[in-house]
Design a protein around this nucleic acid. Structure first.
Lengths: 135, 135
DNA sequence: CTAGGGGTTCGAGCGCACTCCAAGTCAAGC
DNA sequence: GCTTGACTTGGAGTGCGCTCGAACCCCTAG
C-alpha cells in the first residue's frame, strides 16, 4: 500500500503520516523500487490504536513512550500495561469531570428556559403584543 | 479586589486575566485611583463559568461569542441558550466517544494481563525458574 | 514523448491558548 | 526617603500538533 492509499484508509493526511514517521510514532516504512513508502496492512491497526490514544487526549510524547516500549519487545509488557492503566484512569477522571460540567450546563440552560418563559408571560409589558394592545 | 487577589481566587494567572480582558472574555475592569484594575467579587462567577466551558473543550472564539451575546442583554437569551444546548450536545457526544475508547483500552489492558500471565506460566521455558530447573 | 498524478525531502508557517519579558509606575511599611 | 513588591503596557516567545510550499523525482497511460 502506498502512502496515499494508507492516508485514505487511515484518515490521516499523507503529511501527517510522514510527520508521524519522522517523530517516531510510526515505524520507518519499507520502500519500493522507486523509493516510495510501501505499507503493510498491519500498520492500520496501529494507526487506529494511536487514534484512540489521541482521541482520549494522550499527548504525542506519551504515545512515543508507548511506541518505544512496544518496539522494545515483550520485556516491556508490564510497563505498557501500566501506562495504559494510568491513561485509562486519566480518561475516566476526564469523563467524570465532563459529566460534572454537563450538570452545570443543564442547570444554566434550564435557567435560560425559565427566563425566556417569564419574558413570554410578561411580553405585553414591553412589546404590547398581548390583547391589551390590540389595535 | 486587585488582580493578584483575583488570580489567587480564580486560579488564573494575572497574565491570563489580562489576556482574557484584552481579547474580550472578561469585561474591561474598573480602575482604582492609581490606575490598577479593581474587581468586583461577581466576576468570579463568570470566570468559573468560563472555566467550565474551557474544561468542556469550548474554544475561546466560541466563548467570545457567548460573552458578546451576554453583553448584548436580554434580547440574546434565546441565542445563548441555543449555543449552550449545542455545546452540551457536543460534550455529550465527547463523553460517549471517550467511553467507547475506554472499552477499547480495557480490552487492550486485559490482553496485556493475559499475556503476562502466560509468560508467568511458561517462565521456565526461557528462564529456568520452574521446579524443572531446581538445582 | 509527454502529461499527469502520484511520490520524495526539508524547512517554514499556522492556530491555539497562553506565558513571559522589559521597562516603567505606584503605594505602603520601615 | 527608600525599599519592596504588586501593578502597568506592548510585544515577543512557547509548546503542541499539525499543515503547507517548493522543488524535485518517477511511473503509467495516451
Amino acid at each position: 500500500m502506498k502512502i496515499g492509499e494508507l492516508a485514505k484508509r487511515s484518515g490521516l493526511s499523507t503529511h501527517t503520516i510522514r510527520y508521524y514517521e519522522r517523530i517516531g510514532l510510526l515505524p520507518v516504512a519499507d520502500r519500493d523500487a522507486g523509493g516510495r513508502r510501501d505499507y503493510d496492512a498491519e500498520i492500520l491497526a496501529w494507526i487506529e490504536f494511536l487514534d484512540r490514544l489521541k482521541t482520549t487526549g494522550m499527548p504525542i510524547r506519551d504515545m512515543l513512550r508507548y511506541a518505544a516500549l512496544r518496539a522494545a519487545g515483550d520485556a516491556t509488557m508490564a510497563a505498557r500495561r501500566e501506562q495504559l492503566e494510568a491513561h485509562r484512569d486519566a480518561v475516566r477522571a476526564r469523563v467524570a469531570e465532563l459529566q460534572a460540567c454537563l450538570l452545570v450546563l443543564d442547570t444554566k440552560i434550564d435557567g435560560y428556559v425559565e427566563a425566556e418563559e417569564r419574558m413570554q408571560t410578561h411580553e405585553h409589558d414591553t412589546r404590547n403584543t398581548g390583547r391589551d394592545a390590540a389595535e
